[in-house]
Amino acid sequence: MRAEPTGTTGLPGRLIAVEGLDGSGKSTQIRLLHQWLEGLGLKVFFSEWNSSVLVKDATRRGKKRHLLTPTTFSLIHATDFADRYERQILPMLRAGSIVLCDRYIYTAFARDGVRGCDPGWLRRLYGFARHPDITFYFRLPLQVSLGRILEGRPRLKYFEAGMDLGLSPDIYQSFRLFQGGVMEQYDRMADEFGLTVMDATRTIHRQQEITRRIVAERIDLARYRLRRRR
C-alpha cells in the first residue's frame, strides 16, 4: 500500500531527494542537478544528511564509544534530521525554494529497519517530515556498488559497516551483508513511497539527462527563478 503522500502541497517550495546505497553515484547526480538548477538561475538549496553542528557532537561521542543501540542510533539521527528540517528545509520550502536533499528519511527507514527497529515506529517517528515531490532511488546491483566501495579496501567505519549487528567479525563481510539488507529495504520502499527508480548502471551523463528531464516534467521550474534586480 502506498503511504499517504503528504507532499509539499500548501508550501510554495519543492523538495527533491536522492536515495541509494553507498557507491550508487547518487551524490554525483544530485551535485550535477544542483549545478544545472543554479545555472538556470533558480532558487535552490542543498542539504546533506547528517550535517547539523549541534548533534554532531553527540553522534561522534556515541559512535566513538560504540555506545549506540539500534534505538539510540535511530533517535540521534532523527534528532539531527529534525534540527535540519526545522531550521533549513522547512523554512526554505516556505520561502519558495527548490530544496535538494542528499539522503532523506528513507535512509533512516532502510538502515534502522535493517538494525531491527520497528518499521511502523520509524515511520511515525519521522511523521513530521513531508515526503518529497520527487525521490530518486539510484539502484545498482548489489555486487556493483559493493565493488565500487570495497575496491580500494577503504577504512570502513564501525556503524557504517553495520558491525553493531554482529553479522560477521570481518568488517568487509559485515558491510556486504549490511548493504544487502539496506538494498532489500529500499526495494520494498520503492513501492511503498512511490520512489522514482533510476537505473544506476547507465553512464553518469545519461542518468543526469534522465534526472533533469524528470525534474523539468514534474516541477514548473519557471516559478523558481530568482527575481532579477533592475
Binding site: 549541534l54 557532537d57 561521542r61 540521534i76 532523527a78 529534525a82 526545522e86
Partner: peptide, 25 residues
C-alpha cells in the same frame, strides 16, 4: 546518559533547539 547529556546541557544554555529537536534529544 553519557551519550547526549553534555550536548543537551550545551544546547539548553544556548536555547537554540526547536521544541521537536529538544524532544528527540
Amino acid at each position: 546518559s553519557r551519550l547526549v547529556a553534555p550536548s543537551l546541557e550545551q544546547a539548553q544554555e544556548g536555547n537554540v533547539l526547536s521544541p521537536r529537536t529538544m524532544t528527540l534529544f
